[in-house]
């Protein structure tokens, strides 16, 4: 969300592929996101129970397809796909080449790809995985006056590999995988 706020404040366009339909416009706006520059692709309102695995798989496939379309369109500063609340069994059923393919789409483009998940995703050779560790902060001393001040997030790069092309060292493709460890 902080990334979205920073990019939209500078005039960039952010696409948010919300596979599990978790995005909250009010809190995003309060976090400084310019909502007019957010392309929100909502996922279906499905139950992620094991009995409806096919429906969940279809929702993930659609999210991936939407991510692919947006990344190929060009001009979008950040394409984020939020699969943090998608059960692991749906992500594990994806072919191994899925994340490589997404990274390949982003190669040579000015678009940053973000995968937001509960665990590291898309471990491509050139990607970067960040683990976000959060600690809740509370304000107020008494029980009655206590309120949630927010989460202090500490990013930690758990995988950062660079490759060399000729004499120039560059990071490519620009595919981040954020895993929220709370």
């Amino acid at each position: 969300m902080a990334t979205m706020a920073a990019v939209t404040r500078q005039g960039g366009v952010v696409a948010w592929v919300d596979v599990a339909d978790r995005f909250d416009p009010a809190s995003a706006s309060a976090a400084g996101v310019d909502l007019d520059r957010v392309l929100w692709v909502r996922g279906p309102n499905v139950s992620w129970s094991p009995s409806q695995r096919t429906v969940g798989d279809l929702a993930v496939q659609r999210g991936l397809r939407a991510f692919d379309l947006i990344a190929r369109a060009g001009g979008i500063a950040v394409v984020a796909m939020d699969v943090a609340d998608v059960p692991v069994r749906h992500l594990q059923s994806l072919p191994a080449a899925t994340w490589f393919r997404l990274g390949h789409v982003l190669e040579g483009r000015d678009t940053v790809g973000l995968l937001v998940g509960a665990q590291p995703l898309g471990r491509s050779a050139g990607g970067v995985s960040l683990t976000l560790r959060a600690r809740s902060e509370w304000a107020g001393r008494s029980l009655q006056s206590r309120r949630l001040a927010g989460l202090a997030v500490t990013p930690e790069a758990s995988q950062r590999i660079r490759r060399v092309r000729g004499h120039r060292k560059e990071e490519a493709p620009c595919l981040f995988a954020l895993s929220a460890t709370l």
């Binding site: 902080a2 978790r22 009010a26 809190s27 976090a31 001040a149």
Partner: peptide, 13 residues
Amino acid sequence: KASAGKPSTTIRR
């Protein structure tokens, strides 16, 4: 730049 700000209270609804 963004993460250096105040704590986040974004809701995943």
